[in-house]
Amino acid sequence: MADSVEVVVEPLGPYGPSVLRAGGELVYEIYIASGHADRVERLPISERHAQVLRTDAKRYWFLFTALHDPYQLTETRLSADRLSEYLDTILLAEPAVVEAFLTDLDHGSANGALSNLLRIFVDADRERMREGHWFDAIPTP
């Protein structure tokens, strides 16, 4: 008999990630578009992380865009320690720390992919993000 799966955080939009309780463990389920090998990744998260994803739409989308890039290729998948750093920084750190982290990623190895993905998914202001103002770049409903 398969383990039951409970949706803890619903996707906020098409292709948006969700949080599931599967086999008693919380997992962050993200759809990864990777050319001909699109797939779903399930990454372990904590209750504390799930609570932020449930209540903070901006951080929800920041995590999605930050994780999408490294999981597109097997060679760039995050180690457990690096995944923990992404989760703790994006979901739990002060806004200035989050913005610096995302800006460094976007200007570095992601080569603008983070800000571009947020522009596509939530109509965020790409220039504001490229300048380091991530929280202000996403329109509030």
Score class of each variant (00 low, 15 high):
2 A>H: 14
2 A>P: 15
2 A>N: 14
4 S>E: 13
4 S>A: 05
5 V>W: 12
6 E>S: 13
6 E>K: 15
9 V>S: 01
11 P>V: 08
12 L>Q: 05
14 P>E: 14
17 P>C: 04
20 L>R: 10
21 R>W: 07
23 G>K: 11
24 G>N: 09
25 E>G: 00
25 E>V: 04
25 E>K: 12
25 E>L: 05
28 Y>F: 13
30 I>P: 02
32 I>N: 01
35 G>E: 04
35 G>M: 08
36 H>R: 13
36 H>W: 14
38 D>W: 11
40 V>F: 14
41 E>K: 02
41 E>A: 05
47 E>S: 11
48 R>W: 09
50 A>T: 06
55 T>N: 13
57 A>S: 15
59 R>K: 13
62 F>P: 00
63 L>N: 01
64 F>Y: 03
67 L>P: 01
70 P>D: 06
71 Y>L: 02
72 Q>M: 12
73 L>W: 15
74 T>L: 14
75 E>P: 00
75 E>L: 08
76 T>Y: 08
80 A>Q: 15
80 A>M: 13
83 L>E: 03
84 S>Q: 14
85 E>Y: 12
86 Y>W: 12
87 L>K: 09
88 D>F: 07
90 I>D: 01
91 L>Y: 08
92 L>C: 10
94 E>A: 15
95 P>K: 14
95 P>W: 11
96 A>Q: 11
97 V>I: 15
110 A>S: 10
110 A>T: 08
111 N>G: 08
112 G>H: 13
112 G>K: 13
114 L>P: 06
115 S>Y: 10
116 N>A: 10
120 I>K: 05
125 D>A: 04
125 D>R: 02
126 R>L: 03
127 E>G: 07
127 E>W: 06
129 M>I: 07
129 M>N: 02
131 E>T: 07
133 H>F: 07
136 D>V: 03
136 D>M: 05
137 A>D: 07
137 A>R: 02
139 P>C: 03
141 P>C: 00
141 P>D: 08
